[in-house]
Amino acid sequence: MTALGIDNLNVWFGTDRDRVDAVKAARFDVAIGESFGLVGESGSGKSTILRAITGLAPTWSGGITVEGKALQGAKRDREFYKTVQMVFQDPYASLHPRHTVDQVLSETLHLHGMADIDARVERLLHDVGLGKRFRFRYPHQLSGGQRQRVAIARALAGEPDILLLDEPTSALDVSVQAEILNLLTDLREEHKLTYLMVSHDLPVIGHMCDRLAVMKDGEIVEIMQSDDLRNNTAKHAYSQSLLAASVVG
């Protein structure tokens, strides 16, 4: 069974002369336990696909299935959020500045209808490599990497099967990026997660994902294995140029 199925997906914003077709006829499947990457330039529609899945981009057509269940419109039920969670790009913007780490995680656990919240908060913090001393801190008392860890903990709170990662490390320093990517690698193994990861950084996608789709102007131009990326056997001219631009000279 596939974890995520995207079939002939179209997403657009605006009307008439300001209408932008952000995603055009996208089609790919992510198997359970797989790590799938979406790469492309800004504006190529890669984040928009994630937003359409989570219901943040209401104007879409086509088919999205999550673990075999088809989604409709922009409404998502509770069951969906227990299956799919998202980690956003900017850890500075995605945490409430006046809520402590404890409040952020407890509230999320409460919304997921979890019992035994106190112990779970501690477990979540432990899972993402933050000690107990971080529990009652506010976001401004954390570094960027620590904030992203809290955001990941929040995503894990409902014990999801699928994580949507929208540029999870592009706001971080390379040294911190290495730590977060290592954490994501470990979590995927421990929790048997499926990743759909968006990044503009080809080496990061190559490091994290088994397969990837290259997007350009809202269309998927090529789906390939990460090994193809490494061996430089991309077929489409655009993927080749993207690759050429990101290989260390």
Binding site: V174, A178, N182, P203, R230
Partner: peptide, 16 residues
């Protein structure tokens, strides 16, 4: 060393 590299795949990246 903490940068992921396409030509040198590995499971974990080096941490500073």
């Amino acid at each position: 060393n903490s940068l992921p590299r396409l030509d040198q795949p590995r499971k974990h990246l080096e941490v500073l």
